[in-house]
Design a protein around this nucleic acid. Structure first.
Lengths: 223, 223
DNA sequence: AGGCGTCTGTAACCTTGGTTACACAGCCTG
DNA sequence: CAGGCTGTGTAACCAAGGTTACAGACGCCT
């Protein structure tokens, strides 16, 4: 399941994370020697709440879904990490020497390059890499603020309408998947979708939602 | 209301933000020349949603309350910035060249040292300062994760119980202030407090809450 | 065709928390 | 002392969303 990163790795890694091409030779060598490629199957929990952060993950393929887990088993998605991005929570935990406060799940079969703590800290000594992390930090912060706004102030119909928009005219998705995305339950999503359909905003069929009236949905999303 | 930072400023600033003592002379000079001291009265809005971020604030005295404002006028407190701390949202907005996505309010009469954008970016060139910001970033992230957990999953009685704990045995506070802290309304807090009182967890009087049974409150907070 | 698993529809009911609308108490001040 | 302000108590009502419990639909596999 795991093996040392070798030379053959560099091409895709550097393509996905261009900032790494600017590294001095010593840092680059260290990365090659200490980073490990890990393959995890879809659905695997890569890290979890209260767990110590073992290393910094670069996503080579697939994607991570980072969620906050409720005591009752429900999950609120916080953000996703796709190839070329980084996980703000991992950075924060490594920098603050704190345990994880969220759960990371492989959405599909996913290949990660895991960089041990010490080597991550060393990499931060490189200005280019540090700026790269900083940049992603600030983007994620904005996302999290948006999320706080949504869960604290928005009603579910607004959030659902917003979720449906901007993914094309026809969505192939189950009600359960939409509910998961909102941190809600299937019945409520069905109820709301039925309401949308009655208003002529969408048309429903099995595992499919057709957007009939995007403007109307936008109105619902932001009323 | 504002005046240029002069030599007399350095002592308190350096005491509050020890990282600044390590700056090279050039950076230190730049700070002195470009930073402005601003005094704002209690309740003043220092920055607000969608507003461009004008500069990076160091808090010299007083404190900032950073909140997310709901369309209906209610506010959810995100965190506070006290002297010696920094505002993660300001950093994120400056780094990401994005507008503010929250509101900052002076809790009391507050003195700020405002560092213009360009000078903040320049300061980030100093490793010590960058690490300082990074460290606070990660602490705040943990706070925000905690907040998301609370608003998404915790019931109000749990949050209220948690809020009452750890502030000593006798709190001098109005129900309205507690409600504001939770992003809720006075009536609900009164109702919940009455419940707590009936269970013998607290005793109520005007502008005062006495904690009678901390263990019981902890149980409520985490059931 | 028969049977199973997944997805959807839907109704009844419940809990939480917010809204509205008062009453009253304590206190300060003219 | 009167009048006003702030803080508290409380009840009736309401809306949102979650829970429980089914029924039926669709597709697939044997």
């Amino acid at each position: 399941m795991t093996d040392n990163a070798d030379g053959a790795l560099n091409a895709p890694l550097n393509t996905l994370y261009p900032v790494l091409t600017a590294l001095p030779a010593a840092a680059s060598l260290r990365l090659q020697q200490h980073a490990q490629v890990v393959s995890v199957p879809a659905g695997a929990v890569v890290f979890d709440e209260l767990q110590a952060c073992q290393g910094f993950p670069f996503v080579l393929s697939g994607s991570l879904r980072v969620v906050k887990a409720a005591p009752n088993g429900r999950e609120l998605p916080l953000y996703r990490v796709t190839p070329g991005e980084t996980c703000i929570i991992s950075s924060a935990c490594l920098l603050g020497h704190a345990p994880y406060n969220a759960r990371g799940i492989a959405e599909t079969e996913t290949r990660l390059l895991l960089l041990p703590n010490a080597d991550f800290q060393a990499l931060l000594g490189e200005a280019a890499f540090r700026d790269f992390i900083f940049q992603l930090f600030s983007e994620r912060i904005a996302d999290l603020m948006q999320l706080i706004e949504e869960v604290a102030f928005r009603k579910l119909d607004q959030r659902l309408a917003a979720l449906l928009l901007g993914k094309g005219q026809r969505l192939h998705v189950t009600h359960q998947q939409l509910a998961d995305e909102l941190g809600s339950v299937r019945e409520i999503v069905s109820r709301l979708l039925k309401g949308f359909a009655e208003q002529g905003l969408v048309a429903l069929s099995r595992e499919q939602v057709d957007i009939l009236n995007p403007a109307g949905l936008r109105r619902v999303a932001s009323n």
